[in-house]
């Protein structure tokens, strides 16, 4: 064991090495490693967030689908109801129309009947008068019996 100037030389070397490490080795490497750790943590957080987002989206989609189904059911029910209603309305309308047609037809028939009766009456009257005339021509002057004829005509 012998101490000499080597000790000083070694100490200076040591100091320079430590200084160099402190300046050019430690900070860049640790900064880089910290940044990497941060980036990994961020990535994991983002993945977690993505997963949550996906879950939320799936939930929303399920909700939407459920809502849409419900809505479609409602629409179908309403449509059915409306269709029934329309059919009922059509039935009613048809019934009313039918009744009206029947009434019209009845009225016309009545009128025709009346007219036919009138015509018949007139013809009967004419016939009667004609018959009476034929009978009377031989016996009475038609002019003299015109009043009578008219009254008979009115009675018929």
């Amino acid at each position: 064991m012998e101490f000499n100037a080597t000790l000083l030389g070694q100490a200076i070397t040591f100091a320079i090495l430590v200084w160099f490490t402190m300046k050019f080795v430690w900070p860049p490497l640790t900064n880089m490693m910290d940044e990497r750790a941060k980036r990994i943590a961020d990535g994991l957080a983002a993945a977690e967030r993505g997963k949550q987002d996906l879950e939320a989206a799936e939930q929303r989609v399920a909700d939407e689908i459920r809502k849409a189904k419900q809505q479609s059911t409602e629409i179908m029910l309403a449509a059915e109801k409306r269709a029934n209603q329309i059919v009922e309305e059509a039935k009613d309308a048809a019934r009313i129309e039918g009744a009206k047609l029947v009434a019209d037809a009845k009225a016309e028939i009545e009128q025709e009947t009346l007219r036919a009766k009138e015509v018949l009456r007139e013809q009967v009257a004419v016939l009667a008068v004609a018959g009476a005339e034929k009978i009377l021509r031989r016996e009475i002057d038609s002019a003299k019996n015109a009043d009578l004829l008219a009254s008979i005509k009115a009675e018929l």
């Binding site: 070694q10 070397t13 040591f14 320079i16 090495l17 160099f20 490490t21 050019f24 080795v25 860049p28 490497l29 880089m32 940044e35 990497r36 980036r39």
Partner: peptide, 21 residues
């Protein structure tokens, strides 16, 4: 020891300089 010290700081500084994230 000087050469070894240079090897140490050389390798480490080189790695620190070219460090990839």
């Amino acid at each position: 020891s000087l050469i070894l010290g240079f090897i140490f700081v050389g390798v480490f500084a080189m790695v620190a300089r070219n460090a990839k994230l």
